[in-house]
């Protein structure tokens, strides 16, 4: 009998404990839930949350603005890089850093023809004048720094371009409108007529595709500096005077 009440009471207390703690927790959760909050608290919570939300949306706006600014800057950078690359290509073509290909005219001069360096200069000048875009003589590119001259030793006189001797046959290649180039050389009283007087008959050949080699040596500049006009915004009085001088 004694043992039995013990066990019963213990079992009942155990169940009681479980029930109580479950109910405790449930009630606590329920009371802290939104449905049990007072209206004032709910209003305050809504206000708080909506102001937070507003702040966050402002932040989103701000961040998207910054993102677009960054993207714009990146695009500008890319634009800049591609512009520079284009510029560089153009400069490479102009300064003769790259080999070029295009339709044009070749002028072949053989050893037996009585031709001096000055005639070569005339031919080249005439080609430029007739609209040649790039000219090479054998394996030498004619650039802004090119010199066409002669060199001699005890036996012989050599033609030189860019201080390199040129072997016969001398082949001048010019890229441009082939018909125009040819006409430029062959007009009556022009260079071809002139050379014919001396019994020199260079061979002209129009080609659909001629190759103009790249220059072999890069020019080095030790003395020259780029001239930059003074900035007009930095000081007001001086540039006015300078500008006047320039205009004169």
């Amino acid at each position: 009998m004694k043992r039995k009440w013990y066990l019963t009471i213990t079992a009942v207390f155990l169940v009681m404990g479980i029930l109580l703690s479950l109910q405790f927790r449930a009630q606590e959760n329920f009371a802290s839930g939104l449905t049990m909050q007072r209206t004032e608290n709910l209003i305050a919570m809504v206000r708080d949350l909506s102001s937070k939300r507003q702040n966050l949306s402002f932040e989103i706006l701000d961040l998207t603005e910054r993102l677009t600014a960054q993207k714009q800057a990146e695009r500008d950078d890319k634009q800049l890089v591609s512009n520079i690359a284009n510029e560089m290509n153009k400069l490479n073509i102009i300064t003769g850093a790259t080999e070029l290909i295009g339709p044009g005219l070749t002028i072949t001069i053989d050893r037996y023809m009585p031709i001096l360096y000055i005639d070569i200069i005339n031919i080249v000048n005439e080609l430029w004048a007739a609209g040649a875009e790039a000219i090479s003589i054998n394996d030498q590119r004619v650039t802004a720094n090119s010199a066409i001259f002669y060199a001699e030793n005890s036996n012989n006189v050599f033609l030189t371009v860019n201080n390199h001797t040129i072997d016969y046959p001398v082949v001048i290649m010019a890229i441009g409108d082939a018909a125009n180039l040819e006409k430029g050389l062959t007009i009556p009283g022009g260079i071809m007529d002139n050379l014919a007087l001396f019994g020199a008959y260079p061979v002209l050949e129009k080609k659909d595709e001629t190759t103009v080699v790249a220059r072999n040596d890069t020019p080095h500049f030790y003395f020259l500096k780029e001239y930059k006009p003074e900035d007009t915004s930095s000081s007001e009085s001086k540039p006015a005077a300078n500008n006047q001088i320039h205009n004169d």
Partner: peptide
């Protein structure tokens, strides 16, 4: 022993993951 039973019950109840649904809280109480 009954007191221990009560404590054990409270412990078990707090470790249980079961939640009384809010609609039945009133009847549970």
């Amino acid at each position: 022993l009954p007191l221990l039973g009560l404590l054990a019950g409270a412990f078990i109840g707090s470790t249980l993951t079961y939640e009384v649904p809010p609609t039945y809280i009133k009847y549970m109480s």
